[in-house]
Computed example of a mutant assay.
Amino acid sequence: MHDLPIHLWYSITRLGGAGLTLPLALTIALWLALGYTWRLALGWLAILAAAVSIVALTKIAFLGWGVGVRAWDFTGVSGHAMLSTAVYPVGIFLTLLPTRASVRVAGIVIGLAAGIAVGLSRVVLDAHSPSEAVSGCIVGALAAVCFAYCAWNARPGKLSVVPVAVSLLMLAVALHDVRVPTQRWITHVALHLSGRDRPFIRARWKAGVQTPRRTPDAALRHDASLPSGLT
């Protein structure tokens, strides 16, 4: 698989971008609210929010304080791997919810495979270490399976497969290359909370080189450089 063209790996990795997966997640919540119950919709959003929080907290801990595991080259849970492994299985599960159990299970497995492919692409493209991609897939898979377990006995037949599938597919095609600067936002939060001038960087961290703390002058320069509303 590593012999695939590099442009194909980039296409795969974009499937896990927040600009695509988060709108898909919100659309899933909307369909759940319309076709089933608001309780299911809110449950899905709560589960996903918990998974997103794990990603954000591990990244903030590393960028701001250098918290990681050097032996595993771990600096934070992969957001691409987590989001794709959480959202795609649930999207397919929702589409297949009116069908029999075996079909739903097959759909979840296909969704998990798509998420794992995104996780692998992050490693191939040197965006994440294997431990970060694997942890992202695990967190995302747990979120997807947890929601599927909670929604397994939802009353079928209240939601037609066609509009759900078509809307999710159209959204995936339309937003495939939309990018959201989540890493930049997380870095701003990490620097603000830790009081550092610069974030920890993987290469320096692995070499044991300390990242300097923010000086008063540097803090003023940093705050002045932030967009309005982020200071």
Rank of each mutant, 00 (worst) to 15 (best):
G107Y: 00
L4K: 11
L22V: 13
H188Y: 12
G115V: 03
G68L: 02
A29T: 09
T21D: 11
A106M: 13
T75V: 10
T37Y: 10
T13W: 12
A114C: 09
V77Y: 07
A190W: 05
A154V: 05
I12R: 07
G195L: 00
V105N: 01
V109G: 08
A144G: 08
E132P: 03
T211R: 03
V180F: 15
F147N: 00
I47N: 05
G157L: 00
A113V: 13
A218I: 04
P23E: 07
S78N: 04
W9H: 09
D223T: 09
C137A: 13
E132Y: 03
T182P: 08
P199M: 00
T75W: 02
W31K: 13
V118D: 12
R14T: 13
Q210N: 11
R204P: 01
A148N: 06
G111T: 01
I60F: 09
V145C: 06
G19K: 07
D217L: 06
P156R: 03
K158L: 09
P199Y: 01
P199E: 06
L142A: 15
E132R: 04
R70W: 00
V124M: 07
L34R: 15
Q210L: 10
T99W: 07
G195W: 03
L125D: 02
I138Q: 04
H192I: 08
A224T: 02
F74L: 01
L83W: 12
V178E: 12
L193M: 02
S228W: 14
S53H: 15
L26H: 05
A25N: 08
T85C: 06
V189E: 03
R70S: 02
W72E: 01
A25E: 11
L159G: 03
S11K: 11
L30F: 13
R155N: 08
F93I: 09
G68Y: 01
I92Q: 06
Y149L: 10
S194G: 03
L42S: 04
L30P: 11
W205Y: 09
H7M: 11
G66F: 10
L220T: 14
V124R: 12
C146I: 12
N153D: 11
S84P: 10
G43Y: 05
V166F: 00
I6W: 09
C150Q: 13
D223V: 06
T182N: 14
Y10T: 15
V209Q: 08
M170A: 14
A117Y: 04
W72D: 01
S228E: 05
L125N: 05
S121D: 10
A29R: 11
A114R: 08
D126M: 08
A101V: 03
A172H: 08
Y36N: 08
L175Y: 15
L57P: 02
R184W: 13
C150A: 15
A114Y: 04
A165G: 00
A218W: 04
T215I: 02
R204C: 02
R155F: 06
T13R: 15
A50T: 15
G115D: 12
W31C: 07
G76F: 04
A71M: 02
L57S: 11
S78Y: 12
R198F: 09
A127F: 14
W185H: 13
T85A: 14
T182M: 14
A81D: 04
P227V: 00
H128M: 09
G19R: 07
S131V: 05
R202W: 08
P23H: 10
A207F: 04
R39S: 10
L226C: 05
A25G: 11
A148Q: 10
